[in-house]
Amino acid sequence: MSRVAKKPVVLPQGVDVQASSGKITVKGSKGTLETDLSADVSVQVLDGEVVISAKNDSAWAMAGTTRALLQNMVTGVSQGFERKLEIVGVGYRAQARGNVLGLTLGFSHPVDFPVPQGITIETPTQTEVLIKGIDRQQVGQVAANIRAYRPPEPYKGKGIRYSGEQIVRKEAKKK
Rank of each mutant, 00 (worst) to 15 (best):
148 A>W: 12
152 P>A: 04
44 Q>M: 15
147 R>F: 01
72 N>H: 09
10 V>G: 05
34 E>R: 04
163 S>W: 15
104 T>E: 11
54 A>T: 04
164 G>S: 08
11 L>M: 08
116 P>W: 15
99 N>D: 11
55 K>D: 01
68 A>G: 02
145 N>W: 13
121 I>T: 07
62 M>Y: 04
123 T>S: 06
42 S>M: 13
165 E>W: 11
139 V>S: 10
25 T>R: 01
45 V>I: 14
48 G>E: 12
101 L>V: 01
43 V>T: 03
120 T>W: 07
83 R>T: 06
74 V>R: 04
121 I>N: 10
6 K>W: 07
113 F>E: 03
162 Y>A: 04
131 I>L: 13
86 E>P: 07
128 E>S: 00
48 G>F: 11
170 K>P: 03
168 V>N: 11
156 K>Y: 06
61 A>E: 01
39 A>Q: 15
101 L>C: 03
58 S>C: 00
12 P>H: 03
38 S>E: 13
50 V>D: 14
50 V>T: 07
59 A>Y: 01
53 S>P: 07
16 D>I: 06
31 G>V: 03
65 T>R: 01
122 E>D: 11
131 I>T: 10
109 H>G: 01
167 I>F: 00
49 E>V: 13
166 Q>M: 11
90 V>E: 07
39 A>F: 12
23 K>E: 14
41 V>F: 00
47 D>W: 04
67 R>P: 14
74 V>Y: 02
42 S>F: 12
165 E>H: 11
119 I>N: 05
104 T>F: 09
121 I>C: 08
86 E>H: 15
98 G>E: 08
25 T>H: 04
169 R>V: 04
93 R>N: 10
156 K>V: 08
140 G>T: 08
134 I>L: 09
64 G>N: 06
160 I>Y: 09
64 G>M: 06
110 P>M: 09
91 G>Q: 03
25 T>L: 14
123 T>G: 10
65 T>Y: 08
125 T>V: 00
120 T>C: 13
174 K>Y: 10
62 M>R: 13
78 S>G: 07
136 R>V: 08
168 V>A: 05
77 V>S: 02
107 F>K: 08
18 Q>K: 02
95 Q>F: 02
172 A>C: 12
140 G>P: 02
76 G>R: 05
47 D>G: 14
134 I>K: 10
80 G>Q: 03
117 Q>P: 09
83 R>V: 06
95 Q>C: 00
94 A>F: 11
34 E>K: 00
83 R>K: 14
57 D>P: 04
175 K>P: 08
90 V>K: 08
162 Y>I: 06
101 L>I: 00
26 V>Y: 04
122 E>N: 13
173 K>M: 10
57 D>M: 04
